Computed example of a mutant assay.
Amino acid sequence: MAISEFELIKKYFTSNDRGEGISLGIGDDCALISIPSEYELAITTDTQNEGIHFFKNTSPFLLGYKSLLVNVSDLAAMGAKPYCFTLSINLPDADENFLEEFSRGLYSLASKLNLPLIGGNTSKGPLSISISAYGLIKKGCAMKRANAQENDGIYITGTLGLPAFAVDLGYRSAHICRLMEKLSLNKEYDSIFNHCYEKGMLIEDRCAFASALSEISSCAIDISDGLIGDLSHILKSSKVGAEINLEDLPKPEEFREYNLPDDYQDHLCLYGGGDYELLFTMNESFENRLNTLAHSFNVPVKRIGTIKNGTLELRKHGKMVDYREKPFEHF
């Protein structure tokens, strides 16, 4: 006998609906939460669709983790501390094996962040996962896209490009097949894809680091659509330009291990997207404090450029680099 909707919710999604400030969790028409008077509520929503945001037959554990990660990444970009979240999921059928692994992946991150699931919805349909996440930030302390200042340094957490490389591998385009053959990696194709795809799904959250970072930075964004696209949002909102040094882009060790061509590495870092790392600007006078924070939270941080007047300029070893590729857009 198939499990009912309410049995499904009770079995897999009601074990983590309590937390500080949660007056009422799952089980009623609405959840009730209390907001401390000195804080603002940050709200974000993201949807993951099979065939668009992840490949068919992706591990449900990875889906559970990544679906929450992309939302708390938005909270981190504002410097907000995760507070609670809701989940709506469409399923082709009530597959309990899928749900068990999905909830295990979801709660592996939620538990780390002490983040309660306070409500949502389940429905039958093509696999689609929507999460709304809520965070708290002290009034006036949010890191906003419009706050970049001339001469600020531009910084990146973690590395760029690996999720995009995994997507290229997954689609097995003629270009990537030729490249893998040229690099004599064709026989290892599946193992390389599996490694890169899993690592690109299990990205570290930056929430605790970002909350502390908001004391010395007032401008940030998370990198979901590629460095060029997301940096352009900051430049447009702040009415400034920037100079980026491509030799300073933080690249994953896999790029060197697989001996990927240098221009392809740059392409993945600049336009690939799906990195969910923080891109932020900061007055360089705070760099000692930034280094202390990075060490304290074990978060790699690298400066890649400077906010300037004018437009966006890309340089490599001092020479201007042309960029005309269109950043990622959903439509």
Rank of each mutant, 00 (worst) to 15 (best):
N97R: 00
M1A: 13
I203G: 07
V72H: 13
C269W: 00
P82I: 12
G161M: 06
N186Q: 02
Y323P: 02
S232N: 06
S108F: 04
M201S: 10
R178T: 11
T58E: 14
S130T: 07
N288V: 14
T157R: 10
N283P: 10
L260N: 14
C141R: 00
P116N: 06
L127F: 06
S67W: 12
F61T: 13
N151L: 03
Y323H: 01
G27Y: 00
E247F: 11
D205G: 09
C30D: 09
D275I: 04
R172G: 14
G274F: 02
L213D: 08
Y271M: 07
L99N: 09
G318F: 00
K316L: 05
P126M: 10
G140V: 03
V167T: 12
E181V: 08
S111N: 08
E50L: 15
G120H: 00
F61N: 11
R145D: 07
F255D: 11
I203Q: 09
I304W: 02
L246R: 01
G272E: 04
N57G: 13
D248G: 08
V240E: 02
I137T: 00
D222C: 13
G25R: 00
T86Y: 08
I216H: 01
R104H: 08
C207P: 04
A94M: 12
L63V: 15
S67H: 10
I22L: 04
E181H: 08
E204V: 05
A210H: 01
D262A: 13
V72G: 15
K302Y: 09
E181K: 11
A164P: 11
P327H: 06
L293I: 11
P252Y: 12
L268N: 02
S285Y: 04
